[in-house]
């Protein structure tokens, strides 16, 4: 397992160069620069680009960036003048990750049991009900669900705060009450996907010969389902959850906007539209690292679900 972990981290090195190189090139190939506005005279724009070294050849800028990045210095934001990008992204990531964990937790809590129940009661009302809810969850996007939940639970019923973030330092009750609506909005679609995936996968496994054998041996239905069927059925679910977790943990622009959450999601879009090159690069590095890390976690999870895989990895 240690070998696996080391290998995965070594893999991050080529991934890092490919991802940052391509991003750097494409960002600089886009028309327009960070200092273009409808007001600033062109001569002054040039002066500013010069001050930030943007007039150098792109490859030179990339090497300078690499050199600084190696020292974990991702530079100042061009949009938020002079403030280091880390000062925005680290607090943002912390918030997004917390929200993401709650959303994932919610999605698993609803999705897994729903999928299992649906599979075990295939074709009956439990199955239909779960499928209906799952389709609803997939087809109602956060941009609709968010305002709906806000209107119902915050404005009409007054049970929960409308929006905004409360850190743990403000107390556990404000923290949880602020996180519920965005977490549910973010997690609803996920839970539906997990439910459908679990159902399909479990149904397939339940049809296998070894399950019939287990039943024939006289094992309790519960034991067969949980120990034999569910474990194998979870493999595709876990595979799918990996990259999904990376996306959820780094924040969602839509959910963060609707609920005014100071997460990292906004920077995925705003850094590109404002041509804030250092911000784009830092966002990409963080995201790539999390993807690699989450895939590693998924691989480790495989080992626990199915020890036979140790040979394959």
């Amino acid at each position: 397992m240690l070998r696996l972990i080391i290998r995965r981290f070594l893999w991050f090195i080529p991934v890092f160069f490919v991802v940052t190189g391509i991003t750097f090139l494409t960002m600089h190939a886009l028309p327009g620069g960070p200092f273009d506005t409808d007001k600033t005279p062109p001569a002054m724009v040039q002066r500013m680009e010069q001050a930030f070294g943007l007039n150098r050849p792109v490859y030179e800028q990339y090497f300078i960036w690499l050199k600084n990045a190696a020292q974990l210095d991702f530079g100042p934001s061009l949009k938020q003048r002079g403030r280091p990008v880390a000062g925005f992204l680290l607090p943002g990531l912390a918030v997004s990750a917390q929200l993401g964990l709650f959303a994932m937790g919610f999605a698993l809590l609803i999705g897994l049991p729903a999928g299992i129940i649906a599979a075990l009661h295939r074709g009956r009302w439990q199955d239909r009900g779960a499928t209906f809810v799952a389709i609803l969850g997939v087809s109602v996007p956060p941009i609709v669900m968010g305002p709906l939940l806000m209107w119902l639970f915050a404005l009409q019923l007054g049970w929960l705060p409308v929006a905004q973030w409360a850190g743990l330092d403000e107390g556990i009750i404000p923290y949880l009450s602020h996180i519920i609506l965005p977490a549910v909005t973010l997690g609803a679609g996920l839970s539906a996907i997990i439910a459908r995936l679990t159902r399909a996968s479990l149904l397939q496994v339940l049809g296998e010969d070894y399950i019939r054998t287990a039943h024939a041996k006289g094992l309790a239905r519960r034991t067969v389902t949980i120990r034999h069927a569910l474990r194998n059925a979870l493999i595709p679910v876990v595979t799918y959850l990996g990259p999904l977790a990376a996306a959820v943990l780094t924040g969602s622009l839509v959910v963060e906007q609707i609920f005014a959450i100071p997460g990292m999601g906004r920077y995925f879009v705003s850094s590109i539209t404002s041509r804030d090159y250092p911000m784009v690069m830092a966002v990409v590095v963080i995201y790539a690292f999390i993807i690699v890390f989450v895939n590693l976690v998924v691989d480790v999870l495989y080992l626990f679900i199915d020890p036979r895989m140790d040979h394959g990895l």
Partner: peptide, 9 residues
Amino acid sequence: TDQNTELAL
């Protein structure tokens, strides 16, 4: 950022 949220708040 979201002006509907602004009004709700």
